[in-house]
Design a protein around this nucleic acid. Structure first.
Length: 297
DNA sequence: CGCAGCGCCTGAAGGC
DNA sequence: TGCCTTCAGGCGCTGC
């Protein structure tokens, strides 16, 4: 599935073909998830950018075409007279005679034209955490962000709020490298520093390898990425940990398949138990939950 | 306001 | 061989 490295790879291929082009017409699937692209018609593309997993296409007049690829979204260019392929959900006719197609088998993606300065129509984009390569993303920021919620660290990474662009594959890889157990609900300062470093590293390596192709993902030129040949954790449940040899385990966290090493990735003491009869379970009250009756053990 | 749970989608893979 | 079930999962929405 397209996470930050895949989206960035697509952006790099797309930008030189799209910047400066005028969008003459837009045709879309009737669903509101794709029909939101129609107002792009008549506008000229000034820049192709990215925030997290969103492609943000700057249009003249101060609006942006936001593209989220979901699970199976892809972009491809064709000649005006070529037939579009199956599962095309939107087509952008350009002034150089080419057509940019948005294809998405499972329709989990989304297209929308929004004001460049106001992303409130797209809640996840609006509340997106810092870019992983930005100076604002620091170990301290990561530690504070994770501390502000009592959800599992893996769940929080997938929420896009501590940092933008991490999905299921790179979350498992970063947690494994940092030796952080995915179900822990807080980080020590040491773990936060490690996880910060591994998030940056796995995403950078993903970009360097043009993304991870497991199934549907292709670069803008239709090529496979090759990061799938370098995964240490994701998809390797039952195989031996490359550090310690322990069999990697698969659990479900936040309805996502999660692979981890039960030996290397240390579960914090006291976080394993479930107390369904107790409304408030553990931890000190954070700034975000002031007024709630938090109590420590 | 935070968060758990659900629905959206369809092809691939596995079971019988 | 072919039908049926299960699985993959990012994000928006709803309701507690």
């Amino acid at each position: 599935m397209p996470e930050l490295p895949e989206v960035e790879t697509i952006r790099r291929g797309l930008a030189p073909r799209l910047e400066g082009r005028r969008i003459l017409a837009v045709q879309t699937h009737p669903s509101a998830k794709f029909a939101g692209a129609r107002p792009a018609a008549g506008h000229t593309v000034q820049h192709v950018g990215r925030r997290g997993k969103y492609l943000l296409v700057d249009l003249d007049g101060g609006s942006q075409l936001a593209i989220h690829l979901g699970m199976t979204g892809m972009l491809c260019l064709r000649g005006e007279t070529d037939e579009d392929e199956a599962y095309t959900r939107a087509s952008f006719s350009l002034d150089d005679g080419t057509v940019l197609d948005y294809r998405d088998v499972r329709r989990f993606g989304r297209l929308a034209v929004v004001p460049a300065h106001d992303h409130s129509a797209l809640p996840t984009l609006h509340a997106l955490g810092p870019e992983p390569f930005d100076a604002a993303f620091t170990p301290e920021h990561l530690w504070r962000a994770v501390r502000s919620s009592r959800r599992a660290v893996k769940t929080q990474l997938l929420s896009q709020r501590p940092v933008a662009g991490v999905g299921n594959i790179y979350a498992d890889e970063a947690l494994w490298r940092a030796r952080v157990h995915p179900a822990n609900t807080s980080l020590t300062a040491t773990e936060a520093a490690a996880l910060h470093a591994t998030i940056v590293a796995v995403l950078r390596q993903g970009i360097d390898r043009h993304g991870t192709t497991l199934r549907d993902y292709r670069t803008f030129d239709g090529d496979y990425g090759n990061n799938q040949d370098h995964l240490d954790c994701y998809g390797r449940s039952g195989a031996p940990c490359r550090r310690c040899g322990t069999e990697l385990r698969r659990v479900v966290i936040d309805a996502r398949s999660t692979t981890f090493c039960p030996t290397c990735q240390v579960r914090h003491r006291g976080q394993a138990r479930k107390r369904p009869l107790t409304p408030t379970t553990r931890g000190m009250p954070s700034a975000a939950s002031r007024g709630r009756a938090g109590r420590s053990r």
